[in-house]
Design a protein around this nucleic acid. Sequence first.
DNA 1: TGCTCCGATGAAACAAACTTGCAAATAAAC
DNA 2: GTTTATTTGCAAGTTTGTTTCATCGGAGCA
Lengths: 160, 160
Amino acid sequence: MSKRDQPTHLDEFDRKILAILQRDNMTPQRTIGDAVNLSAPAVQRRIKRMREEGVIRADVSVVEPEALGQSITIFVEVEVISETAEQIERAKSEFAAAAEIQQCYYVTGEADFILVVIVPSMAHYEALTRRLFFGNNNVKRFRTFVAMDRVKVGLGVPVG
Amino acid sequence: MSKRDQPTHLDEFDRKILAILQRDNMTPQRTIGDAVNLSAPAVQRRIKRMREEGVIRADVSVVEPEALGQSITIFVEVEVISETAEQIERAKSEFAAAAEIQQCYYVTGEADFILVVIVPSMAHYEALTRRLFFGNNNVKRFRTFVAMDRVKVGLGVPVG
DNA sequence: TGCTCCGATGAAACAAACTTGCAAATAAAC
DNA sequence: GTTTATTTGCAAGTTTGTTTCATCGGAGCA
């Protein structure tokens, strides 16, 4: 089912293609081909393969939050009380389901979850904390960090 | 040249288009048009306008880090000593320039910066801390959170 | 009401990009 | 050295993106 089990082997061509696509996935295959010394069909076939393998997980437009009135970015460290597998799974799906939570990671260290939250106002954030944290009796405590500047934002992965 | 100064006004059509593009920007304009009840050219013009306005900031492929051997995601809270404008700017550009730092935010609260780091191994992370934190005498302390599960990852913004 | 102006729209023509079929080149295994 | 499997490039065919242009509809105004 998941092709990620077998250690996917990417050659230099694949990596160069990925580097380009991570910057701009609307680049014509012809242009990519010129950049990596390959024909357009060859590039196309490699991209298709990497999509099927799950190397390329998605192709998306990156939208400026402020343009949509979602001007506040907040980090939240969440610490839970009980860390049973069941409780953790429940928390994961709860966080994943919230539209305001852009990113959610289960982490080691002094916190259990780290969330990236995007909201239109602090009032909305306050409502979210009531719903998600105060309304969840497995949340021990949470710490809030409001972003003043989104210095660097992206999902780019170094191609090595 | 930044058009973001004027409060960009997005109508219902724009928002629906953005919702689709944030999920899959390879969706044909025709398909989008059918979904929002607009012709393909109308969709095309709106997308072009939103790109020019900066509402759509980029179009990218999302790559699975593990496929590139970058299997470790780490959050770092950085606290600095001196928070003068000059020092902060210096830190910002330093963090932004590091390829391993996928995301960087300047925040309020108990920390000053929050970083999302992607590395192939803990050894690489250790080297990065030496270079970026121990090698910077304005860094008071930093706290590390290693991601065990990337529960939800993306840059999607709620369309309201 | 009737008029003009302005911006956005859809149909069609056009251009560009993607996709497929196929023969040739490459490389690895035998 | 032959064979096999894979990957490539070219060219044709198909889909998608883009431009043109006539029209529609609303805002402002006499």
